[in-house]
Simulated assay, not measured.
Amino acid sequence: MPIRITPYTPAEVAIATGRTVVNQRNDRRSGYAPRHHGHARFDLIGVARNYVIQSFAELGIGPASSVRFADDAGNAIARTLIRQPEAWSWAARSRYPGMGIGGRVVGVHRDLIGLLPFEYERPSIMQGLIVWANGDFEISPKFIAAPGSKLPRERKLWGPYVTMGFGFAGWALAERLPRPIFDWVEENEMD
């Protein structure tokens, strides 16, 4: 299938996530992000991971803490990002067999699954991340609360915590992308 997941430059990641190029470089130098040989390029997970780190940095939780859950949260956000039409080029949306009415991705084709840098599982828009004040975190399969709200029935949520809903995060990231991540490649353009 001539679908391509296009890599992002640090400048494009900065536009999409708000994480500056300087902060991205500092993250790599400090060991909070993978090092690149040559020019830095970010795949689907790298973009989502930077979005998580920046979102928590804006709340005062720096990369030294957020790096512990950035990979798990980034993977979950990347899975939801696949289903956002803004993440797809017009050419890919018009030709991809998994597109439904209105450009919403209704199915993930096995050839696209083979391109993904992670094992694909159908995303749940109700899934989210809970981070407590002591630094512990949990990926919750039934995350339905708005950020900052309290769930009085769940005793473990009575203390201070920060939340991130993956469905919302995937949608918000897709809205900020400077260009689509998923693109269609004509057969004559393929290597």
Rank of each mutant, 00 (worst) to 15 (best):
G107Y: 03
V106N: 07
M190Y: 11
I113H: 03
K150F: 08
A14G: 11
N26H: 09
R104E: 11
F137W: 15
V52Y: 10
W171H: 12
S66Y: 05
N50Y: 06
S66A: 08
A57H: 04
A87H: 01
G135I: 15
D71N: 10
P160L: 06
F42Q: 04
N26L: 06
R25I: 04
Y96C: 02
T6R: 02
R28C: 07
P117E: 15
F56G: 03
R95F: 09
I61H: 03
R49P: 11
N50D: 14
P123V: 01
V131L: 12
A169F: 02
S65I: 15
H36N: 09
Y32C: 07
P180K: 08
S124R: 03
S140V: 02
M1N: 03
R179V: 13
R83A: 08
G128K: 07
D71L: 13
G167L: 11
H109D: 15
R176V: 01
A33Q: 13
A64V: 09
A33D: 14
L177K: 03
E175S: 10
A87T: 04
A78T: 10
I3S: 03
G135T: 15
W158S: 02
G148W: 05
L59N: 00
G159I: 07
F42K: 03
G74F: 08
V21W: 06
P160A: 08
I139A: 00
T17C: 01
P178M: 10
I53Y: 10
L115K: 14
E86S: 13
N188D: 08
D27E: 07
A87D: 00
F42A: 06
F56Q: 05
L173S: 08
H36Y: 12
Y32R: 13
E121P: 03
G38D: 05
F143P: 00
E119A: 14
I45P: 10
M1E: 05
D43V: 01
E12G: 08
A33G: 09
P117N: 12
A70T: 04
G98L: 04
Q24A: 14
